[in-house]
Design a binder for these strands. Sequence first.
DNA 1: AAAAATAGGGATATTTTTTGTCCTTAATAG
DNA 2: CTATTAAGGACAAAAAATATCCCTATTTTT
Lengths: 162, 162
Amino acid sequence: MILKSQVEWALHCCAILAGLPEGRYLSTKALAEFHGLPKEYLSKALQSLSQAGLVHTTLGPSGGYRLARAPAELTFLDIIEAVEGKARTFVCTNIRANNPCRAAGYCDDRPCAVARIMWEADEAWREKLRSVRLSDLTETLAKEIPADLWKSSFEWVLERAG
Amino acid sequence: MILKSQVEWALHCCAILAGLPEGRYLSTKALAEFHGLPKEYLSKALQSLSQAGLVHTTLGPSGGYRLARAPAELTFLDIIEAVEGKARTFVCTNIRANNPCRAAGYCDDRPCAVARIMWEADEAWREKLRSVRLSDLTETLAKEIPADLWKSSFEWVLERAG
DNA sequence: AAAAATAGGGATATTTTTTGTCCTTAATAG
DNA sequence: CTATTAAGGACAAAAAATATCCCTATTTTT
């Protein structure tokens, strides 16, 4: 069970978009080039962000993406669920219903106990991801990335932002 | 990102094995029949439990599986990791290294900040699963399952346990 | 007005993972 | 000796992930 690589891509792209000045847009092409990713497929991930309302887009030259909200109002979970979907990571197929000792037509009044535990763990994962904001990530990156790399990356992006 | 169905199967099978009297074994065939699962494929899940040392096996007629430890000493995480593997659910491909502004030969001194957050969430999931013992599940089941179904299921298993 | 660049999205292809089956081998109980 | 079992290898089918290609409508630039 491994998350799609698009999740990683979307998080990194959002981190870049978080640094974009008000009103500017960055294209799929620039984001793909910056991260060394296949442009067409990255585009699908960005479309997911767009459909989830996390980013705004414009068309035409100088078009692209910008965040729809402030980085402090965007959580990791928002981004991950946009790309990966909101479905729980454990699917209960209710195999208890196959118990040969069950009376025909027997009906369970609660979800399977196994599933309930698995879903609690899933929720613990989501709760952690909900607690981290995109702004937390950018603050960490600002501290950790060497100042000259940070600056040149910022300039690289600005040169391409419409 | 969805867990293998074998995870669900393994958890239910362990719940059954937890009710087995000391020294008795239950075969793949019985476990598959009880849960309505494909015997050959379920066998792979049980082999994973065996390789992880969670169950003991014996060969021959009246052979099969029994728990290697008391249900209170077996966690959900033990079972899930035996089947699903211990690898983290987020794989970092270190796309930050593709940043065109990086000096050649530049070397990161810490794991990517995105990955660290994702791994924290993964750990929150595991910590929750580590906190639930197989005995917790069987206690819940004992409360929730109607007494007659509980009893007949137990008898069904005992008739087939070697 | 024309040209170029963009996002959106449909169709399709490739690769990997999951799910499942089949068969052989070695061990064990009766 | 026979029947039954777990272990495990080989293989096949189905599903999901990872792309690639192409067309359309829109927007900016020329």
